[in-house]
Simulated scan of single mutants.
Amino acid sequence: MNSGIYAALSGNLSAQRRLDVISNNLANSNTSGFKADQIQFESVLANVKNPTQQAPVFSNDRYSTDYSPGAMQRTENALDVALDGDGFFVVNTPQGPAYTRQGNFFRSQAGRLVNADGFEVQGSGGSIAIGGGKVEIAGNGEVVVNGATVGTLSKVDFPKPYQLTKIGGGLFVPANPQAAPAPTQASVKQGYLESSNVKVVVEMARMIEASRYFETCAKAVKSYDDMTAKAVNELGKV
């Protein structure tokens, strides 16, 4: 088959994956602490090492995450917290510790501080019991309930550039399981949430660009298909 049609099909696949990433970014434009993703492509010839194989031309896609901070949004909710500076909160999942910028925490039925998925938020001494009292959280992460200190929010950071993997629910884990986090000096702001860092106007422009690229590649595929059909019909008359 003409290699040109493989390139056009690869363009379609690349554009579709890019549209998927953009759509996810836009869907999370109002999700607190969400970090936008981007995708880049490197075109490769799949049969470059073995020209006898008629393997298609595809693209290697590389995903990256924009870790720039979102804007601070005041909520007045005592259990909403945001980090002013680099770093992450720590939550305990069934698979181990995970890290997040989403500070919309809750009080569990057991009186523990948990995230939206019910995972316990970790403090310097483990989970934090807040009971049913009035909660105050200081800039250093110290949690005070009815005037008594019950724990201190764990705040950690990793070397940059970050080598983290998204696992859903606004959570990250190190790509290297052996990577150890270090304490961060970022301050905690009670009654605030960090907004998503998705730039809606930019993402919409990227969506239009990717959609047009998809349409162009689709037209190219049709053109190659028409040429192939015409060639077959002409050869059949010979």
Rank of each mutant, 00 (worst) to 15 (best):
G123M: 09
Q102D: 15
Q109G: 15
L79M: 14
P94W: 01
G96R: 08
G132R: 12
I130N: 07
A82I: 10
G132I: 03
T93F: 02
A78L: 13
G85Y: 00
N115P: 05
G131M: 06
G96W: 03
F119C: 09
F106R: 15
N115S: 08
A129E: 10
G111E: 04
V114Y: 02
D86P: 10
I137Y: 01
V91H: 04
N115K: 07
F89V: 12
A98E: 06
L79D: 11
A116W: 00
P97E: 11
I137P: 03
A129S: 11
L113S: 10
A116G: 06
V135Y: 08
D86R: 14
G126D: 07
G123C: 09
D117E: 13
Q95M: 09
T93I: 02
L83H: 06
Y99K: 12
S124F: 01
A78F: 11
R101M: 12
Q102K: 14
G96H: 07
D84Y: 01
R101Q: 15
N115V: 09
D80S: 12
A129K: 00
V114K: 03
V135N: 11
Q122N: 04
N77Y: 10
P97G: 09
G131S: 05
D117N: 11
F105I: 11
G103E: 05
G118R: 02
V81S: 10
F89E: 09
V121M: 07
I137G: 05
F89G: 08
F105H: 10
V90D: 05
G125A: 12
R107K: 15
A110I: 00
I137T: 09
N77P: 09
G103D: 07
